[in-house]
Write a protein that binds this DNA or RNA. Structure first.
Length: 266
DNA sequence: CGCAGCGCCTGAAGGC
DNA sequence: TGCCTTCAGGCGCTGC
């Protein structure tokens, strides 16, 4: 499941491929989730950015091509024509002869073209602070989490208190900060630890090229390396790396969740 | 306005 | 072996 580190790794792979290139042809799955892809034909790429889990490809007419990878979305670059693949939902021929393909088996991804003000995608416009920006503070995290009655993990997944965290990095950050994922309120010290943990697990995820559990691939087609460094996510039944207690899996608001029963108390 | 709940998708894994 | 069921989960949408 691509989260901020995976999307950032993809962004870094796309940038050298796309910067300055013009889309000279393209095609898309007829679904409204993908068919905007063809409206960028004849446009030139001016920037390749990321906001939360969204990729923002800036165009020479001021608009942006926005791509969300969903659960199984991946980009591939081919020299010339790509091989036939029923899971490719959109493709673009570039002016250097290469082809960029967006492949998404489960079709949870989404492609849109929006104006500069981002209002074309309300969820994007409403995202919380980028975790690496100054605007993401312990004070703000404490205030926002406690303003709602929802569980802290659910709020992290909601993209409003901070952008870019998904199920893997939520479990990792909560474990590292020793915060119970089901808590509805957190103390100021806990908010401070959680902010630090979120920033660190995401930065380490980027540093190691993202977490490949099944579908996630880099633009070059490789796997990430962060799956070998997880302390908590997906490790139910194994000992907590900090205290040795057996990690336990449960379901919180419908999301599979792993935590340490000793380190992460309410 | 906030939020809970459901639906979207399909391949993999588990049960019998 | 093969069929069937369950699960994974980010986010859009609906309705209270």
């Amino acid at each position: 499941m691509p989260e901020l580190p995976e999307v950032e790794t993809v962004r870094r792979g796309l940038e050298p491929v796309l910067l300055g290139r013009r889309f000279v042809d393209g095609g898309a799955h007829p679904s409204a989730k993908f068919n905007a892809a063809t409206s960028v034909i004849d446009r030139t790429v001016r920037s390749v950015d990321r906001r939360g889990k969204y990729l923002l490809i800036g165009l020479d007419d001021g608009r942006r091509l926005v791509v969300h990878l969903g659960m199984t979305g991946q980009f591939q670059v081919h020299e010339g024509e790509p091989a036939a693949d029923p899971h490719v939902r959109a493709w673009w021929l570039l002016d250097d002869g290469r082809t960029l393909a967006f492949r998404d088996v489960r079709r949870f991804g989404r492609i849109a073209v929006i104006d500069q003000d981002l209002t074309g995608l309300p969820t994007l416009a409403a995202l919380g602070p980028e975790p690496f920006d100054e605007g993401f503070t312990a004070e703000g995290l404490w205030r926002d989490v406690n303003r709602s009655t929802a569980r802290v993990k659910t709020q992290l997944l909601g993209q409003r208190v901070v952008a870019g965290v998904g199920n893997i990095y939520a479990d990792e950050a909560l474990w590292r900060a020793r915060v119970h994922p089901g808590s509805r309120r957190i103390t100021k010290p806990a908010a401070g630890r959680l902010r630090r943990a979120i920033i660190d697990v995401l930065a380490e995820g980027i540093e190691h090229g993202g977490t490949t559990l099944r579908d996630y691939r880099t633009v070059e087609g490789g796997e990430g390396g962060n799956q070998h460094r997880l302390d908590c996510y997906g490790r139910s039944g194994l000992p907590c790396p900090r205290c040795g207690t057996t990690l336990r899996r449960s379901v919180i608001d419908g999301r599979g969740t792993t935590r340490c029963p000793t380190c992460q108390r309410r």
